[in-house]
Design a protein around this nucleic acid. Structure first.
Lengths: 214, 214
DNA sequence: GCAAATTAATGATTTATTCAAG
DNA sequence: CTTGAATAAATCATTAATTTGC
């Protein structure tokens, strides 16, 4: 409720412009007591330089919106448009059990899929996220639907059960976190890999798998 | 609420070896055969190569379960532990209005904060996410609490209000998505794997953001 | 006073929801 | 409508701070 969508931001700017004395260091107590690594006074940042956001307080018209943010490079369009091959491979992987590939895996998958068309790591990441979620929701809907409308005389109760069971019970329950390493990236939607690079074939293990709900 | 804290490790299973289409009947129909657009034979990917965890067919050596329980490289093994300066700056930024920095901003912030201690981009990203969420939830709780129990004698109402006001009411309503460009990255974080050697002295290289090189 | 056990905070990851392009 | 993209919410997991027992 309340989607007041007003643009109220931008009070930030003024703050940095001057950057007075910067009363830093006496607030926001950490968990309970200050850690106080060292009392060194930082040679205050030039953060302001990059903070300055898009200064959208702009009186600019609508036509002049030149998002100078270095990016765009609308090359190739806006969003990833997977090819059949790519989808096929991804689904294969999914069916094979891949649920949440880690960095390395994504990197490699991306590399492979790249042979069939433009693609980025984040696309792969998102694909798995979305696919997983949507499969789950579809399944749930089906399941509920069946339960909710037992219109069909349970002459074949078995089928029902089977169905439920069959739909990949797999290892995809709720929150079963195993905490593999991830990481977020951020450089624009352009290329530019920030790979750590220390691969070296670590026989990465796959899906943590294992029930053990808590 | 006792955190048992047990380290359950589950190793990956090799359920890749075979096609998942075993005797499951005829349910799992593939969406569409990876139709090859043209006669080109896509030297089928070696996806398996990295998906599958090292075929365990002939482990001449007994698989040493060198869990390598995260001996945590001394200087920054597990999770980012922000210093006072870093926190201070981040909070300053937050209060300045920064809510969800984009790639560039994160990059720069990370660079700056890096002067005070080890830090990665994802840390900055997570920090903002968490901080925002927790501020929100705290505020909500407060709000509710106040409404629900107006018992608190507002001896220092002013302070409270001021505080509240000060805490950036901003544009933090519901999902006001601006869809700035983001991206997920994935470099590694690779858990401590070295089973005895000195830590690679990785020394935290910031992503040089080199283009597509490898 | 110190160290183990508890508790509080918070970093990191996954899931749910929502927006918007095609 | 389908689905890629992005954000918010939930929650796991680990560390710092506090408390407790000696």
């Amino acid at each position: 409720m309340r989607s007041l969508n007003m643009k109220v931001h931008q009070l930030a700017r003024g703050l940095w412009e001057h950057e007075p004395s910067l009363t830093l260091g006496c607030k926001r107590l950490r968990p309970l007591a200050p850690k106080l690594t060292n009392g060194e006074t930082p040679a205050i940042l030039d953060l302001k330089s990059f903070i300055k956001p898009e200064s959208s307080s702009g009186p600019s018209k609508s036509d002049d919106k030149r998002e100078a943010v270095q990016v765009d490079a609308p090359s190739g369009g806006t969003r990833w448009n997977p090819t059949q091959e790519q989808i096929g491979i991804l689904e294969m992987l999914y069916r094979g059990g891949m649920r949440t590939p880690n960095a390395q895996q994504i990197e490699k998958i991306t590399a492979q899929l790249g042979k069939f068309g433009k693609i980025e790591g984040k696309n792969v990441f998102y694909w798995f996220q979305n696919h997983k979620a949507r499969e789950r929701q579809k399944q749930k809907r089906n399941s509920l639907g069946l339960v909710h409308s037992p219109r069909t005389p349970p002459a074949t109760t078995v089928a029902l059960d089977v169905n439920r069971d069959e739909i990949e019970r797999e290892e995809d329950s709720h929150y079963k976190r195993k905490h593999r390493g991830w990481a977020i990236e951020f450089f624009q939607q352009d290329r530019g890999f920030c790979g750590g690079g220390e691969e070296g074939d670590k026989t990465l293990e796959l899906f943590p798998l294992h029930p053990e709900g808590r």
